[in-house]
């Protein structure tokens, strides 16, 4: 069989990716690292050693602010989002009537383009005429300046992110659930396991690889929130939604401090590398890979 498949051809077929990787990923990563040690404004370039990093870490309150905003957002939106998606998937896995219809309805929000989504949520969060304050008003609450009061803005962003819990992540959970053999549950029931114990001891461990995958990508995604902040609040009020990606964009393409922006990007990269590394390390304690692969 091997002589039918000489490897050389395989290499030829992956060339588009390899060239693209060198041109648009590996090369630029190195260039970005080099740039991070310079002062560069698209015209002149000066090598300034580690000054960008020193400034970011010790002399730039906005860096710490944007990090705080992003970490806070990730801390709430990622676990809530994963729990929400898993909850929906568990409900849809109960063989209820109309499962396909519900699946489609829950998926719809994640089809909305991010700019349109940002605009329609701005209108929902509108303090005077928005739907949210109107609804809260029916219960005697409301009057919240969702996007203008820095106490609430990040919360509003988290709420908005939860609109997407029925998207790809939920579908992936559902596929994972449907892949769990019924025999595990039968065995657990024979041992007298309650519904909760079945969930805790059968469903969760068997779903943990999918959970881990979603967790890794969820955290990385949360660190890249840009469009919503750019459209809805422009980072305000008082930098309460100055997400890290917005801060990089501004330094690069509004202030033309491309050296400093590159340093910021590398700090982001290192932070994500550390977080992902810790997650991989911790995963040995809670992620269970089955010997047998289901297909």
């Amino acid at each position: 069989m091997k002589k039918h498949h000489p490897g050389r051809w395989g290499f030829v077929f992956i060339l588009p990716w390899l060239i693209g990787f060198l041109l648009f990923t590996a090369g630029p990563m190195i260039a970005s690292l080099v740039l991070s040690f310079t002062r560069y404004d698209l015209n002149t370039i000066h090598f300034i050693g580690t000054k960008n990093y020193e400034r970011i870490l010790f002399d730039e309150p906005l860096f710490w602010k944007s990090l705080q905003v992003t970490v806070t957002y990730a801390f709430f939106s990622v676990p809530l989002g994963i729990a929400g998606s898993l909850g929906l998937a568990l409900m849809l896995n109960q063989k209820v009537a109309g499962e396909r219809l519900f699946r489609t309805l829950f998926y719809l929000p994640s089809l909305v383009p991010s700019v349109a989504s940002a605009l329609l949520w701005s209108w929902i969060f509108n303090a005077d005429n928005g739907l949210l304050n109107y609804t809260l008003g029916l219960f005697g609450w409301g009057g919240v300046e969702w996007l203008a009061d820095e106490k609430y803005t990040l919360g509003a962003f988290v709420v908005m992110s939860l609109w997407g819990i029925g998207g790809g992540r939920m579908i992936i959970f559902l596929a994972g659930l449907q892949g769990i053999s019924e025999s595990y549950y039968e065995a657990a029931r024979l041992d007298g396991a309650s519904a909760w114990r079945q969930f805790r001891n059968v469903t969760l461990p068997l779903l943990s690889p999918v959970m881990f995958f979603n967790l890794i990508l969820g955290v990385i995604g949360a660190f890249q929130v840009f469009t919503q902040a750019y459209i809805m609040t422009a980072g305000g009020p008082n930098n309460a939604t100055l997400f890290y990606a917005l801060s990089i964009f501004r330094n690069a393409f509004e202030y033309f401090k491309l050296g400093k922006a590159s340093a910021l990007a590398w700090v982001l990269f290192l932070i994500l590398l550390a977080i992902t590394g810790i997650q991989f390390w911790a995963s040995r304690r809670w992620v269970h890979y089955e010997g047998e692969a289901k297909s």
Partner: peptide
Amino acid sequence: TMMLPGQVTMIPVFM
């Protein structure tokens, strides 16, 4: 590369 934040390559690619 799925885990690589786009911001790291954005500026050199722009250049």
